[in-house]
């Protein structure tokens, strides 16, 4: 009797586990299906090759090229600046400070920064910009995104370097390399796939984030021509167009969401491919 109950309990729990797992997969598929099914009908060449024309937000002609270019500028700029700080920091944490208390504290700070909501970064960026007398601009958006991406990238790179076999730097030291030479000529080359993945991860996070650029980059119908002009972004294009009462404009919000999803998933997939490709330059 007792044995039977145990078997039954096992089956019931397994069923619930399977159902939970299936539910999460179902949600993922449902999201992708919804975005594709709703976004595809109004996706056209004009959407991705033109900037908004007069009356665009009433349902007239035009596209969202301004937002696509704006988003690429913002995320590229943010990723490059974040890379400039994240990469040396990750090397420093592992080569120069490997097991120290200070390294632990830096990692804790990075984890804390990683958890700060993007809207708080947006509010902080906005405050600093007001303090400096800047208006909403491409540069403001880039710097705020860099702040948002920096901890994600630094932590990801740190994890990659930490998984490195310790024999590799030891061998370099044994041959007489300094810390610096070990870091740049041996470690960096070995972790190239991981670095690329970390940078692309941060790029994907940056391009999809709306709350941080809402205050700092502004929104405009033109393609930004300088660092100090405002810049549109894809997530905000989705958000603003969905907020209008016109069905034609809302339709375009769906296709803007589809474009954004394609870009983000494309980045996610290509980072996998890139990591695989760069792996051939590492020692195994």
């Amino acid at each position: 009797m007792r044995w039977k109950w145990q078997q039954l309990e096992e089956k019931i729990v397994q069923l619930f586990m399977l159902l939970s797992f299936a539910l999460i997969l179902f949600c993922l598929l449902l999201i992708l299906y919804t975005i594709v099914a709703k976004g595809l009908p109004s996706l056209s060449w004009a959407m991705i090759s033109q900037t908004p024309k007069g009356g665009f937000y009433l349902g007239k002609e035009g596209g969202i090229l301004n937002a696509i270019i704006g988003s690429l500028y913002l995320a590229l700029g943010g990723t490059l600046i974040a890379l400039l700080f994240a990469f040396p920091l990750a090397l420093l944490l592992n080569i120069y400070l490997s097991q120290s208390l200070w390294a632990d504290l830096v990692r804790l700070s990075l984890d804390i920064l990683w958890g700060i909501p993007s809207i708080v970064y947006g509010a902080f960026g906005f405050t600093v910009m007001i303090f400096l007398g800047w208006r909403a601009s491409l540069l403001g958006g880039i710097l705020t995104l860099a702040l948002l991406e920096f901890p994600i990238m630094a932590r990801a790179m740190d994890e990659v370097i930490r998984r490195l076999p310790p024999d590799l730097p030891r061998a370099a030291y044994a041959l007489g390399s300094t810390n610096l030479e070990t870091a740049f000529f041996v470690v960096t080359r070995q972790i190239l796939p991981g670095l690329a993945t970390a940078a692309l991860l941060a790029f994907g996070r940056g391009i999809g984030d709306a709350a941080s650029v809402l205050f700092t980059a502004g929104y405009t119908d033109r393609i930004p021509n300088s660092l100090f002009s405002p810049a549109a972004s894809l997530p905000l294009a989705v958000f603003f167009q969905l907020g209008t009462p016109f069905p034609e404009v809302q339709q375009r919000a769906y296709s803007a969401a589809l474009i954004l999803t394609i870009i983000v998933l494309g980045i996610s997939l290509s980072s996998r491919w890139l990591a695989h490709y760069l792996d051939r330059f590492s020692i195994h």
């Binding site: 999201i31 999809g208 709350a211 989705v238 969905l242 769906y254």
Partner: peptide
Amino acid sequence: LLDLLAAIPSVVYGVWGVL
């Protein structure tokens, strides 16, 4: 697949929620 789900931008989740 989990990474994919985590990579989807929040505004896209918003659109899905609205729809």
